[in-house]
Design a protein around this nucleic acid. Sequence first.
DNA 1: CGTCGTATTGAATGGGTTCAAGTAGCGTGG
DNA 2: CCACGCTACTTGAACCCATTCAATACGACG
Lengths: 247, 247
Amino acid sequence: MVQASNSDLIPLIRKLESIAPLSESERQAILGLPATVRVLEARQDILRDKDRPSLCCLILSGWVCRFKLLHEGKRQILSFHVAGDIPDLSSLHLPVMDHGLATVTAARLACIPHENIRDLVIRFPGIGTALWRDTLVDAAIFREWMTGIGRRTALGRIAHLFCEMYLKLQAVGLAEGYRCELPITQIDIGDALGLSNVHVNRSLQALRGRGLISLQGRTLVIEDWPGSCAAAEFDATYLHLERPSPA
Amino acid sequence: MVQASNSDLIPLIRKLESIAPLSESERQAILGLPATVRVLEARQDILRDKDRPSLCCLILSGWVCRFKLLHEGKRQILSFHVAGDIPDLSSLHLPVMDHGLATVTAARLACIPHENIRDLVIRFPGIGTALWRDTLVDAAIFREWMTGIGRRTALGRIAHLFCEMYLKLQAVGLAEGYRCELPITQIDIGDALGLSNVHVNRSLQALRGRGLISLQGRTLVIEDWPGSCAAAEFDATYLHLERPSPA
DNA sequence: CGTCGTATTGAATGGGTTCAAGTAGCGTGG
DNA sequence: CCACGCTACTTGAACCCATTCAATACGACG
């Protein structure tokens, strides 16, 4: 745990600006937030179900996921998060966690006490609005995942997840040219989409066989963007990005 | 369309107080909101995907649902809403609708312009926080549904929905004694939980056969609350109710 | 009393799971 | 430098929960 430097909070600014414009004084106020940096290995718990945290975690690097556990080791991954996200922002207003939060890869987190965020929001209501907006986009993504799990085929679900992750990463400068890191296992994908790892494997092969995507190690390449969007019935409206998505 | 009377906004106050305390001046400010009342038949659209509304709808009576449509008439219901809910509150900060909104039963809505809500939130930040909290609870319910659709059996999903609806209705005074109105069809239940109507029917029979619930016309009776909770793996934490749930 | 939407039942089909075994890649330590 | 062990990935085959198709029954309403 070390004190965060100003530049550590830049991902947050980029993220907020991807959903709402910020003034210079707002940017400065964010950079002035006190934060301590936590460095975590892959597959480590950050928060557990029923915890009552007093701070929020801004992701500086790495991937993090939210999840719920059920009987017999069943797991539902609720969301994936990358640099610039605050996956536990809801704890600012909902004191008890109703799910867990854990790293997927090794990650660096900036921990910011609730009280400082509350101060910030009072002094700069515009930032409060941006954060609220962020939680609303979060909810929009949950709705889309629900729809996928409930009504899409395995192949469509996976293609949809890939289209979404690509655009999310692109929005914060972590992807371009229909190519991005995808540091998650097939088991993770299954747990996120309500599928068995076996079926994820077969569906991935089908996706490659159709020439829609390819996987080079941990790099996902979307070979055919329009084709993938069609297979997924993907419509980026729900991401509510300021900038429109690629063709 | 007629001007709303003050008493029409009481459901909203009850709802907000079920998630956060309000001061007397805050209550008065809410009662002072200008609202026009819309009266709708069952099965009518309120908002469509891609709409850009300039007002929010507070439900005064009846049931409303949010939904997404997919290819070949497939439909995913995202949530059910009752008196006191503002199902399109997200439109305050996300200009474009990413889903539809429609009545399930006949309903009365109080329509409140965005600008008036924004004024209110600026004058009373506490109300803003309560509304933000409400959207966060909304998101928590999406997460729980996602988990159910992804990882629970048909029987567990239906039992879970019933437990949830009972507590939501109880919180606003529309249910007690493990008994509530359930004015939705088996098709609606299927569309909400990612099931076919046929399978919903069979699962309902199983639920009745086990003595967990009974249906008397449009009235749902949860005959065995602990048993239903167990079958559903139901844990009310995610509803973030101020008052604890029944044993 | 006919009609339309909802509920119910039976039978065939299928997408996805489960179980089981085998393979590939990679870091670690002897 | 290779053996070892761990984890992720891959493949085959049997099984099952849930869907689809189809027919019938019910019930409210004009």
